[in-house]
Design a protein around this nucleic acid. Structure first.
Lengths: 134, 134
DNA sequence: CTTATTGCAAAAGGTTTGCAACCGA
DNA sequence: TCGGTTGCAAACCTTTTGCAATAAG
């Protein structure tokens, strides 16, 4: 039987109320301020559970550790191939708005055969564009 | 100055002449038959070089180690969330043919800002569907 | 009282790196 | 000969796991 845990609660709260996609390490650092005893293993264990429950999605960046997304709606990701950061593709939203709708359409169409549709862009984020191979 | 190496040559040959997307380990095992002295570090080093040169693409599966794709043309991937295998989305090709064209279009449109557009489906492959959580 | 969940530390898995030997130009 | 490339082993980073302690129901 599933039991309540403060740790998991904080994680859900954190992940579902933000638009970016932190790594386990980043999440850990943040939660450690609200709860200094929390351990890394708990973070990973709950993250995996939440993924299985479908509440959270695991994102694999080309660079760096995995990232986690607490937003359910299909959306487009922009991933920096230099630092690995993944953001929702807002900067391109206007141009590609229709694509998110199309993603939903595709998902509906292939329901059963396919669990998820991913659409992402790769490039260099503005921060990384600033520095010449730091 | 760049020098020829038998090892890299074999890798390029292998990766550009197949439609699937092996892991470093799989590639290593195959090449070891043609060249028993070859080492894992060489595989990884060359794989990274080839990715930088743009000859090969690194694919991050949700499950298991990274995979490598020697095909340049934008195409849709189908990834098994159980075993991690990634294949070109041929089974769905008819239905979604237009999407590959759209990918190319998008890529053209955002050239400069964006290096690559990725479209992928997640699901359970036929082999994994066969076995109940083996 | 029972058992899911935790925190810690150790282990595992995948990839990268240092270095001496090797090989192509 | 010179410098890029290799193979090996050790190092590295991220994630998972075993286990005893803790806390939810």
């Amino acid at each position: 039987m599933k039991k309540y845990s403060k740790q998991r609660e904080l994680m859900i709260q954190n992940l579902t109320s933000r638009a970016d996609h932190p790594t386990a390490e980043e999440l850990y650092a943040e939660l450690k301020e609200q709860m200094p005893e929390i351990g890394m293993a708990t973070i990973y264990r709950n993250l995996n559970d939440l993924c299985e429950e479908g509440l959270v999605h695991k994102l694999k960046a080309k660079v760096g550790p995995d990232r986690f997304d607490g937003i359910a709606e299909p959306h487009i990701h922009f991933e920096c191939v230099v630092c690995g950061k993944i953001e929702n593709a807002m900067p391109y939203h206007n141009e590609f708005e229709s694509l998110e709708d199309e993603m939903k359409l595709i998902e509906k169409k292939v329901k059963g055969k396919i669990e998820k549709v991913n659409l992402s862009f790769e490039g260099t984020c503005n921060q990384c564009k600033g520095k010449k191979k730091e």
